[in-house]
């Protein structure tokens, strides 16, 4: 596996949470004080590579941290954001979830200009996505033991052909 700063997160002095699968640390380039990123301990580049049960667990932890922000930091809101792929603004080659504590008038604004789509565009998107998400479900669960050795290879193999992953690897 290539050297990845995020794989070394476990050693960070700004770690706020850790369990068997995930680790959460304060962002080194925070949008607001208390901005946390949660990453899987195992190296995955994009969400699509993260096993289902790890993905679910990651977001459950993200929710726990977001909830803690309301209490500990007296935030009045939180944003949970994943930049999945370079086109989505992903800058680091390790899948991560951003959890940003928010206050009124904190100077942040995550909004997007709505695009005008034709009725055809809507129907087309509906049809395509419906087709493509037909096989969503039957989620992968954690296997009892000795999964990691086998699974790693299985998961890493498609990497080389994956445009999104190759693109991220090029980031210095």
């Amino acid at each position: 596996m290539p050297e990845c700063d995020f794989c070394r997160f476990v050693d960070s002095e700004f770690k706020v949470f850790e369990d068997a699968k995930v680790v959460a640390v304060l962002s080194q380039s925070p949008a607001n004080p208390g901005h946390v990123i949660v990453v899987p301990k195992e190296h995955f580049t994009i969400l699509e590579q993260v096993p289902d049960f790890v993905a679910g667990h990651l977001f459950a932890v993200a929710n726990r941290i977001s909830t803690a922000m309301f209490e500990a930091l007296r935030s009045t809101g939180t944003n949970v954001i994943v930049e999945n792929g370079v086109s989505a603004g992903q800058r680091i080659p390790h899948f991560s979830i951003n959890i940003i504590p928010r206050m009124e008038n904190d100077g942040l604004g995550f909004a997007w200009p709505p695009v005008k789509l034709s009725e055809d565009d809507f129907s087309n998107a509906e049809f395509q996505l419906k087709e493509a998400s037909k096989d969503v479900g039957g989620f992968e669960k954690e296997k009892p033991s000795a999964i990691n050795a086998d699974k790693k290879e299985e998961l890493l193999a498609p990497d080389e052909d994956d445009y999104l992953v190759r693109q991220l690897r090029r980031i210095p």
Binding site: T76, V82, V86, A88, G89, R102, E104, G109, L164
Partner: peptide, 15 residues
């Protein structure tokens, strides 16, 4: 598309 943004806002302060 070449990527996806997954976005959650909790509370009015977060939009």
């Amino acid at each position: 598309c070449r990527g996806t943004t997954i976005f959650v806002a909790n509370g009015v302060a977060a939009g």
